[in-house]
Computed example of a mutant assay.
Amino acid sequence: MKPSGPLFTLLAGLLLGIFMLSLNATTGTRPTSSSNDVTATPTPAAPSTAPPTSPSPTATLPADADYAGRTADDTASVAVSVRDGKAIGYFCDGRSRESWLKGDVEEDGSMALSGTDGARLDGVLRAGKIDGKVTVGDRTRQFTAAPAVKPSGLYRATAEVRGAKIVGGWIVLQNGRQVGILNRDGKPAAAPRIDPASGAVTVDGTRLTARPVVP
């Protein structure tokens, strides 16, 4: 006996449903996320524990002062005047050789002063004194210059006396000793003594005034 048409149709639909369920299970299809999904909140960064950066200290130049002393071989004197980071130096052997030098003083106290004919003074201002070396001509001498409080220090006088150009330089040491050279039209010779209190000096019968040297 043949099955009726409606019964055949029902069986065919049941078989198709079983086949579709089996297909979904095999492919592993996952449902689409809904609008109710929770969004993860980022974790705030931990505050920095590094110490604040402190400002750099303000650099200071060496204090204004005058210095004077002898070379290590005791053949000459050296004086240096420091003002506002500038320096003037004077080397003098008290007979025939001298040199005026100038340059800058760095924040660490170092200085490199230069003069004519290749003269050079290299020193360091540290612990209240200047230690260094000075080169004049073909000789280099070590020296130490200690603080020079007036009347000790560096003096200079310029004038025209009886038609001659006079340029004098003096170093007055802390013990009162004087070392100086007087140039007459470029001819050096030992300088006469000055009065440390007033700077007065007599050259060829003419009274001059030697004044403290500053940069």
Rank of each mutant, 00 (worst) to 15 (best):
Asp93Trp: 05
Val161Asp: 04
Asp185Ile: 07
Arg70Lys: 14
Gly176Ser: 05
Pro52Lys: 08
Gly109Ile: 01
Ser110Thr: 14
Val134Phe: 03
Leu182Trp: 01
Asp73Leu: 08
Leu11Gly: 15
Arg207Trp: 04
Ser81Met: 04
Pro196Ser: 05
Met111Lys: 01
Arg139Met: 12
Val213Leu: 15
Ile88Leu: 10
Pro57Thr: 06
Pro151His: 05
Phe91Gly: 02
Arg83Thr: 13
Gly118Leu: 05
Ile166Phe: 08
Thr144Pro: 05
Gly103Ser: 02
Arg177Ile: 11
Val214Gln: 12
Pro55Asn: 11
Ile18Asp: 04
Met1Trp: 12
Ala63Thr: 07
Phe8Gln: 13
Thr27Asn: 10
Thr53Cys: 01
Ala76Gln: 05
Ser35Asn: 12
Thr209Trp: 09
Val149Ala: 14
Pro3Leu: 13
Gly169Met: 00
Thr140Ile: 03
Ala112His: 02
Gly69Phe: 07
Ala63Glu: 07
Arg120Ala: 07
Leu101His: 01
Phe19Ala: 14
Thr209Leu: 12
Val78Gly: 00
Ala50His: 05
Gly69Trp: 02
Gly199Phe: 06
Ala145Lys: 02
Lys129Glu: 15
Tyr67Leu: 03
Pro188Lys: 10
Ser35Thr: 14
Gly180Cys: 08
Ala189Val: 11
Thr58Cys: 01
Ala189Lys: 13
Val105Ser: 00
Asp138Met: 11
Pro192Thr: 05
Arg156Leu: 09
Leu208Val: 08
Ser198Glu: 08
Arg184Phe: 15
Gly168Val: 02
Ser22Ile: 12
Tyr155Lys: 00
Pro215Glu: 04
Thr206Val: 15
Arg95Asp: 10
Ser81Ile: 02
Asn183Val: 01
Pro192Cys: 04
Tyr155Glu: 06
Gly163Ala: 08
Asn183Cys: 03
Leu15Asn: 10
Asp74Glu: 12
Lys133Ala: 14
